[in-house]
Design a protein around this nucleic acid. Structure first.
Lengths: 351, 351
DNA sequence: CTCCCTTGAGAAAACCTTTTCCCAAGTCGC
DNA sequence: GCGACTTGGGAAAAGGTTTTCTCAAGGGAG
């Protein structure tokens, strides 16, 4: 026989109709009882609730969505294949939304416009309440236009045009954090090695680097722009220590602020090979706080953390309020970074 | 006025009813026309199709799902926070499903049973067609039971009980690939440095390592088990080169097969610091083929790739056929790894 | 000229829930 | 004792689509 003592393998989900029938009421009343709406005796309400509980009733979200015109789903579009940036961000988004019962479709669209359109269409068909777009790097845009989709769109860690809503890390602020930390530690010859000039963040950070040095009356060395790789970090060390040095004084750096953790790692490895002590002779600070790299570096790498999870959380909350109909001004919100101090930057001279 | 020349900002999505009205037919006929069902004159069909096209009609997936009892969504559950393994896998899953119009909810549940249950419930409410579960490592299970959910579940890169359906990488095969490659290159003293003994894959790979050496009549050194970190790679090199060596012969290794790329990187760095040439004196092969690490290693690291994207694709296709009602035998399917040869393993002596 | 069959298309039910409107019975005030 | 109001609960529509059933018209066979 089909009846056994098991706790019901939930073959077909229980519907409200069944709950209502078993509780001896109409579906309308059952619905109201479960949603705390309508008027009925307390006895009726509890009876219905208990019946629902006993049957393990869970409302069909599809039916609800159809009626409410709200699916309680959002799409997260990314072109960050390895998830270096998008996964922490996604964690934040998810965290902000899960309590509202909102689930997230993750779509990796690489840089393929056709694939991007395919995913966007699929999400539109599924009536997502909104879309969050994120990119590998702040100015590497997605190959698809999210305006005029008829649903709210929020950008995170990527800046489209200025009349969209975007959340990005405050890269200039992050750079300040790093360089000012070096200043406080008494470093006086601070160099900057960063990624390609084609990235907007490279310039934002370089500007901040220059500004902080100027404020502290320290000499500036023209930032070395190259690639986001360890190999470039190695190469940059050659230039830094075999080259001209600062301001014609031929002084060598006692600190290097790097554009990301991979560059920083390359720099540290190259310094070690030259017999230059980190952090004693030269301090190094990275950017991104990619834990797995920062902690494996010897010594462990001090790095600027962009708080991607917080960024994702903010983006999620903003989308939620947008979906809820609250108005929001377009614009770009910069969220502060934080410095995660490990051992590569050194300690204050006096302890 | 509300009418302007813009290409219609699609405020409210177009419904089938509107298409039908404009084409002068009933919704039933419109539906059939668009789905290639029913019978009607070719003229009617094309007229309806053109109307739909012109209005930019896209069927409401929610309504379809409600009726078909199929939502064209699946959930991907993971506890891999940084997405090292789950993102490539997800890419494969997504790739397998996107053409079927299926979207993927990504849920990172960390190791929190409460959070896991929350996500599973949310997905059940949304009537996902199935669930794919994946873990950080093959034997690090999710803190939630996916049996008896009433929908198909597939495991990828994680093995639950043997009467589930799981796709995992053939770790033993991958290890064979690496060790046999060393043998072909003429290496004779092949050591193995791997992760913690608490991981099943560590033993699977170690077994294969022993087997291949035995088959080739080469001496076995007891595998060194430790951690999945660079630091452990460093430490292991001490043991390998300051210790007993092979079989009391006190011979030192001329090759090291590592349990992952981070260990391999640590080993290579430590060898360089000892002045031991890689690959000339000692060859090194890693596992995971974590591109960003493997390519940054000097020299670039030869590594075993678990084909996670392929794994994801297989899992996605399997789930699809399960959802389609096709029966599938429970069991664990192992998918082959492949060796990605870079420079750390050396070339054939006469090559 | 009938009868049957085919063709083309529409009506309606179904999926599941929410919400508005409605009604019957009871209660209160005067 | 009567009107007005409250209370408890149900009927029905709505959301957008698919599918089954139904039906009218037309065509061919006898």
């Amino acid at each position: 026989m089909a009846s056994d003592a098991q706790p019901a393998p939930a073959k077909q989900p229980v519907t409200l109709r069944e709950v209502a029938a078993l509780a001896g009421v109409s579906v309308a009343t059952a619905s109201k009882a479960l949603n705390g709406q309508g008027r009925m005796t307390a006895e009726t309400r509890t009876r219905i609730r208990e019946t629902a509980q006993r049957l393990g009733f869970r409302p069909n979200s599809l039916a609800q969505s159809l009626l409410r015109r709200r699916s309680f789903t959002v799409g997260l579009l990314t072109n960050d294949t390895y998830g270096r940036f998008s996964l922490p961000l996604m964690a934040g988004v998810s965290d902000a939304l899960v309590d509202a019962g909102v689930s997230v479709f993750l779509c990796n669209v690489e840089d393929d416009p056709r694939l991007a359109q395919l995913h966007v269409d699929a999400m539109l068909d599924k009536r997502v309440d909104g879309i969050i777009a994120t990119g590998k790097r702040i100015d590497r845009h997605l190959p698809v236009d999210l305006a005029n989709l008829g649903i709210p769109a929020i950008y995170a860690f990527t800046e489209p045009d200025p009349n969209a809503i975007a959340f990005v890390s405050d890269d200039a602020g992050g750079a300040r954090l790093a360089v000012e930390h070096f200043c406080r530690l008494g470093r006086r010859r601070i160099a900057h090695v960063s990624g390609p000039a084609s990235f907007a963040v490279v310039h934002a950070r370089a500007e901040a680097y220059r500004a902080v040095l100027a404020e502290n009356g320290l000499p500036v060395m023209e930032p070395l722009l190259g690639y986001w790789s360890e190999a470039w970090g190695h190469e940059a060390v050659k230039t830094l220590f075999d080259g001209e040095g600062f301001d014609g004084t031929r002084e060598k750096p006692d600190a290097v602020f790097c554009g990301n953790d991979q560059i920083a790692r390359g720099v540290i490895d190259a310094l070690r090979e030259r017999g230059i002590g980190v952090p004693d002779e030269v301090g190094v600070i990275g950017f991104d706080n990619w834990q797995i790299v920062a902690e494996a570096t010897r010594p462990p790498l001090t790095s600027v953390d962009m708080n991607l999870a917080a960024l994702g959380r903010e983006a999620g909350l903003a989308l939620l309020s947008l979906v809820g109909g609250e108005p929001a001004l377009p614009g770009i919100r910069k969220l502060p970074c934080r410095l995660v101090v490990r051992q590569s930057c050194g300690r204050p001279p006096d302890g």
